[in-house]
Amino acid sequence: MTPPAALALPLRLPRPFRRLGRTARGIAGIAILLVAWQVSVPLVGLSPYFYPSPADVFRAFVDLLRKGILPVYLADSMGRYAIGLFAGATLGIVFGVAIGMHRRIALALSPLLKFLFAIVEVAWIPIFVVWFGYGIETIVLALIYIVFFPVLYNTLLGVRTAPQILVNAVRSLGAGRLAVLRLVILPSALPGIITGLRLGAGFAFRGLVFAEMVAAKTGIGYLIFDGAQSHDTARTIVGMIVMGLLWLAIDQFYLRPIERATIQRWGLTVDAEDRR
């Protein structure tokens, strides 16, 4: 986010900030937020139900850990997330390749898929609840629905942009349809598939939390929802913070490295933001 030096406006900040390094400034930002929050609690003068302090939240966090609730909820959430992500991505890849390679399948399915995509995944949750009740089926289905579309779209883009010359080259070396798929189409589509997976993983994480609020009795989303319902607002905030940290960790330690690995190794480039 650093602008070219010449673009920086001569906006003056208090001197202590300017002396700090970049990381330190970032930490300072978070610290200011926390301190302002803590200091504002007595000033606002509301009950912890309306406005818990950081200290309350920390106590709730320790309590949730000690009672073993948080680890169980985390495991439940991650289990649902992994299943939904895997199944949705698999379906997205299969459909993406089929649609990308067969014109008639593309013509037949694209209007329906466009319409289904317009019915956003959250709108499906009520009917999933009617069909499958409150529980893992509803949540996983919603996740599959969320992950399916970005993976499908980006796989399709990858398949359609697989270089025709490489297809010709391997066919001239004696490759049949399946070998073309394995040797050229799938590897060409891989950066797209990974971009789709990364986008889908982001959407699905939000979807997971929402689905758990509505249709689960465990999990991070449920923790956020239930905390407020049972007048333990600090728990809700613990849930929100855990959610934020969890996503940052997933993105940093799983999604980015996977993306980097394929792209760098083959000298390919893909612009994640353009492929949305």
Binding site: T2, A8, L11, L13, R18, R25, I32
Partner: peptide, 8 residues
């Protein structure tokens, strides 16, 4: 436009 704002 401002590095400090961005960092914080």
């Amino acid at each position: 436009l401002n590095r400090y704002v961005a960092d914080v």
